[in-house]
Design a protein around this nucleic acid. Structure first.
Lengths: 109, 109
DNA sequence: GACTCTTGTAACCGTTAAGGTTACATACGT
DNA sequence: ACGTATGTAACCTTAACGGTTACAAGAGTC
């Protein structure tokens, strides 16, 4: 049960450091190429906005990656935040073994 | 470049068929155990609602799975829908090879 | 110094979605 | 006939996305 301890890397960090910096392209130009507003891209780069499925598709088109590369990064951030934002989910009790065993038995029928 | 052709399986389908049916637990009771409203769970089971990170944490607690199991299923659905909902993202042009090559050169410096 | 470009961001908009409560009609089993 | 389980509609609050516009700050150029 490995729990994530520190906050996962935001996709905006990867995009900024590994993709945009080496290209020395301006935020304005990149937003134009992605066909989104400068604000939308800027928010992601400053880690104040999320990479949505639509944005992941645009990034994958521009850089020749999979959309999942970006969505997985975002998913890890979202999960980390959900874990830390509220603790109510920790009150959910695991279903008793007995129920899970019944489950397995029925699968064999 | 394998593209998903048919709509990915909704997490509500997995939850319904593989987890709840074998347990023969009512939706009402399961919602209670998850500490969410009956409506929230019902929407997911009928594939009319999304599994949020918070919900994924609750499901992972109840069934002893990873939260990622549920979030990955949801991510695939979200991506498929984004691909098919709008086509504007297809207008994003891949960055020219020349820029990507400059990228690689700079990495070597 | 004056000018331009770039950038982050605030203020505003419309749209969408999550999650809750309440209420209702239907269906099922006793 | 009765209670239970269910889907769902109606309504509310909160919040996030994405867009436009506008402003202030910084960096570079002439």
């Amino acid at each position: 049960m490995n729990k994530i301890r520190r906050k996962p890397t935001h996709p905006g960090c990867i995009l900024r450091e590994d993709y945009l910096k080496p290209l020395s392209i301006t935020v304005t130009d990149m937003a134009s190429k992605l066909n989104v507003s400068r604000k939308t891209l800027s928010k992601i780069l400053n880690e104040k906005g999320a990479v949505t499925p639509d944005m992941a598709l645009r990034l994958s088109r521009a850089f020749g990656t999979t959309p999942d590369l970006w969505l997985n990064l975002q998913k890890n951030v979202d999960l980390w935040e959900a874990e830390n934002l509220s603790r109510d989910w920790r009150r959910v009790r695991p279903l008793p073994e007995t129920m899970l065993l019944v489950n397995k038995d029925e699968k064999r029928i």
